[in-house]
Amino acid sequence: MSEAGGVAVVGCGVFGAVAALRLAEEGYRVTVFERNRQPLAQASFNNQNRLHLGFHYPRDRTTAEQCIRGYERFRKEFSECVVTDFPNGYFVAEEDSAVTPQEYLDFCDGVGLTYELVEPARYSPPVTGVSLGMLTEEAVIDCAHLRDMLVRRLDASPATVRFGTDVEAVEARGEQFAVRTADGVAGVFDAVVNCTFSDTNRLTRQLGLPAPDRQYEYTAVFVVDWDHPPVGVTVMDGKFTTLLPFGRSGKFLLYHVEHSVLERVTADLAPSAWRDPDFGTLDRTGLEARFGRVLEGATRFVPSLRTARLHDVLHGPRVVLARRDDTDARPSMVESPGPGYITVFSGKLDHSVWAGDEVVRMVRAHTAAR
């Protein structure tokens, strides 16, 4: 690396934090820019916290295999943050599922997933309206614990982290990049790693690089109180519900593929209003009405959930590949659209370890070629 340079990592969700730590371990001088006041403040925290093993993607083997690849590496790296002491069941709906029970079993066997068949009516809680049930070894991530761990690791690392600093632009300057914030040019770097997720294309377009359309979704994951021991219920494969423990909090996360999406836009950029961390599309009355629809969809399969009570909501933008409804493909991608400029695109927290390795490999290849 040149004396004037270093590596800028934009975004300090789990992918930005892990990439920064890995780069710093390799001897690179790293500066992290995060517009929020703490790491994991948006998409990394505002999700289902599922530690994916691949069960969720029977229509896209690539995504499933990436999940299998990432699962054990994440568990090893962040074992303290992984919650495994609960039954976690997957079920195939009797109606409107995109896969049949046999297709789902064939998929699980084909990618080498381990499971135990279970009678849905004997599961706790009993699950209705499904034709197949299985116990899995999937876990969840306690994101509050993960955030604390990453804060400690970043504090102990040589990386410089600038919280509350919004990157307004990235400009090419010959073989280097100027990172501009509201205060002006914050530094000139030899490489930039864009881990902003929903804001990736904005910076990419500024560099004159291709920025393909994405499907942007503003979602609400509901935090609920429910008088039941920790348990997971995921109904496949369509516009159904997921219930998972909210880390070790004693509460649950309730999500519905359709009703939890408050807005959906397919474009090259997300709506600019979504960049505001305080942005919300529903007032309390609207939020409770939306929760009612999510709960109605959930009790179709888990009748005992009718006693669940709304506690809080995790809301924010997420991004998936556009026009993939036929396969539900959700791969993670670490790419270099231009020399020295790397983008990380993923909604799977447990892919962050291998993605960090890919970032290091790409930065090393770029700096070695200079």
Rank of each mutant, 00 (worst) to 15 (best):
L132P: 02
V320R: 08
G112A: 09
S304Y: 04
L23H: 00
C81H: 09
T128K: 08
V257P: 07
R293T: 07
L203N: 07
D166H: 09
G110F: 15
G286F: 12
V179S: 11
R293K: 11
A19R: 00
Q102A: 13
V360W: 01
V127F: 10
F78Q: 09
D142G: 00
G238N: 07
V83D: 03
E138W: 15
E3M: 13
A178W: 14
F345K: 01
N88I: 03
A186H: 11
T343W: 00
L21C: 12
L269H: 03
D326I: 06
A369W: 07
P210F: 08
V193E: 08
A121T: 15
L262N: 04
D148G: 14
G13C: 10
R361Y: 02
G133V: 02
E72S: 09
C81M: 13
D350H: 15
I141H: 06
Q66E: 13
T200F: 06
K348Y: 08
M134E: 01
P230S: 09
N49T: 05
R122K: 13
R35S: 01
L132M: 05
G89L: 06
R162H: 11
R152I: 10
T128G: 12
F197G: 06
M236G: 00
G187N: 12
R323E: 11
L117P: 06
E137H: 15
L53W: 09
F222H: 08
G187A: 12
D225V: 05
A121W: 06
E103C: 12
V30K: 03
G347K: 08
H259D: 06
L207Q: 05
